[in-house]
Design a protein around this nucleic acid. Structure first.
Length: 442
RNA sequence: GCCGACAUAGCUUAGUUGGUGGAGCGGUGGACUGUUAAUCCACAGGUCGCAGGUUCAAGUCCUGCUGUCGGCGCCA
């Protein structure tokens, strides 16, 4: 039964003139009483199969004639090059329906459902996500997504980072407590993790260079095209490292992702209408660094109402990044705008040693990171200053009690990077089953 | 938490000053030997989101509810 011929290879010309056995699903089917044109789909592409009554026999022909879209079929035939649309087509010698489709419940994702959505996300397509996955737009996106995940792994592994896993059930917060998902835990309360970071830091003295890619959960009621309640978070932590060292890797991994997409998924990028030169620019150019103060001055110069000490929200990021042609790092935010784990700048403790990486074209923040507050004295100060109870962070403080070292790391929103690099309109287009405040199904 | 839109057939939608809800796709039956979202003919398919109200009469006007979408704050 094992399948050994893929449509993509046939289209590449590897089987010209040969007899092949293709297994796949009917994408479209049309024809007359004597001849049918069946466009067959598998995970690698689409090819037209010409099924003639004379060639396959009455029984097989009738079965093929009544088979609806998305029926699974096996078609044997000869590969023939053609001037027509696909370059190659199959002259069928036999065909067989493997799994049919009930006419009372035809495949619901029709041309009309797709046409209006135009890569977007209608309620209907979200409700039928399990079926929408097999459409061209979605499989193309999933292939690019896979390459992004692969690129992140290869970037860190090639530099001898160790992949390291943290628990998803946790007892405390990294970000604000209001965005925690609470789950019952044998009579106690537990939470879904918002970030690997605190556990990453715990292993920092053991592994020194480590990373992960795992889901993070945030109970934000955000209704924007860049938020999910469950998103994929690539995080790294590094001992003996400064804010600048961490940024090097942030830039490094993002440029490596862009390069990998161009190398592995050029066709898919073109298919979704992405400008390859744009992606190449993100792969080939350095990402400038800009201090928070400079960003505020720039914004004020543009007439934007912003005060020093404010965190820069999306509306301001958008104005700031409108003129950027590559991602920019924003560094040295005011201490009062950032959580306790960011280390105050020894040269001017009004600021912390942190960075956000802002993607251009209005896509906004894709990385947040920096140097950690690493001495016991400083971390206690910062926790108290934040008004956070110390109890929940005992293990985190302990890390500093036994040989603390300068260290840092970042978190990268993988789905956001996929959204940006593929030019998608909405983060939901890039993940198989998106989760937001109003949807947990299918 | 806040602001704004929308809800008509399986899907995408039209529906005028309130007067018996149409179409395209999809489905079924038929025709057709090279089609590209094939074409042509016929048929089936609707509690107009739910509940009230105004009216002789409501898909249409009013109120409430529910659901969905878009955006803000927050963040990756």
């Amino acid at each position: 039964m094992a399948k050994d011929t893929w449509i993509g290879d046939v289209l590449a010309g590897n089987y010209n003139g040969e007899e092949v056995e293709l297994m796949g699903w009917i994408h479209r089917s049309r024809g007359s009483n004597k001849i049918r044109f069946v466009v067959l789909r598998d995970s690698t592409g689409y090819i037209q199969c010409v099924v003639k009554r004379d060639a396959v026999g009455d029984e097989a022909f009738e079965a093929m004639k009544t088979a609806l879209i998305e029926s699974s079929v096996i078609i044997c035939g000869t590969v023939q090059s053609t001037e027509r649309e696909h370059g190659y087509e199959i002259q069928a010698s036999s065909c067989e329906i493997v799994g049919g489709v009930n006419p009372e419940r035809p495949f619901p994702i029709t041309e009309s459902a797709m046409a209006e959505a135009d890569g977007g996300e209608t309620e209907f397509l979200l409700d039928n996500r399990h079926l929408y996955l097999r459409t061209g737009r979605m499989t193309t996106m999933l292939k690019m997504r896979s390459s992004v995940f692969g690129a992140i792994h290869s970037y860190f592994r090639d530099l001898d980072f160790i992949e390291y896993q943290a628990p998803n059930f946790v007892a405390g917060a990294v970000e604000g407590g209001s965005t925690l998902f609470e789950v019952p835990y044998f009579g106690r309360k537990a939470y879904l993790t918002q970030s690997w970071q605190l556990y990453g830091e715990a292993a920092m003295p053991a592994l020194e260079r480590l990373y992960t890619m795992a889901p993070s959960f945030r109970a934000e009621k955000s209704r924007t095209r860049r938020h999910l309640t469950e998103f994929w978070h690539a995080e790294m932590e590094m001992a003996w490292a400064s804010n600048a060292d961490i940024m090097e890797h942030g830039e490094g991994v993002v440029r490596h992702i862009a390069r990998t997409l161009l190398d592995e998924r050029e066709k898919e990028l073109v298919d979704v209408g992405r400008d390859l030169d744009l992606v190449a620019r993100y792969a080939d150019n350095p990402y400038p660094r800009m201090r928070y103060d400079e960003a505020v001055e720039t914004l004020q110069g543009m007439g934007v109402d912003v005060e020093w000490g404010q965190d820069l929200d999306y509306s301001k990021e958008k104005v700031l990044t409108a003129d950027f042609d590559v991602p920019h790092f924003l560094t040295h935010y005011p201490r009062i705008a950032k959580p306790f784990y960011h280390r105050p700048d020894p040269e001017d403790p009004k600021y912390v040693l942190c960075h956000d990486l802002l993607a251009p074209e209005g896509y906004g923040e894709i990385i947040g990171g920096g140097e950690r507050t690493w001495s016991e004295k400083e971390i206690l100060e910062r926790i108290d200053e934040d008004g956070t109870p110390r109890d929940a962070y005992e293990f985190y403080i302990d890390i500093r009690r036994y040989g603390g070292v300068p260290h840092g790391g970042f978190g990268l929103g993988v789905d956001r990077v996929v959204t940006w690099l593929t030019g998608a309109n909405h983060i939901r287009e890039t993940i198989p089953f998106p989760r937001d405040s109003r949807r947990v199904t299918p």
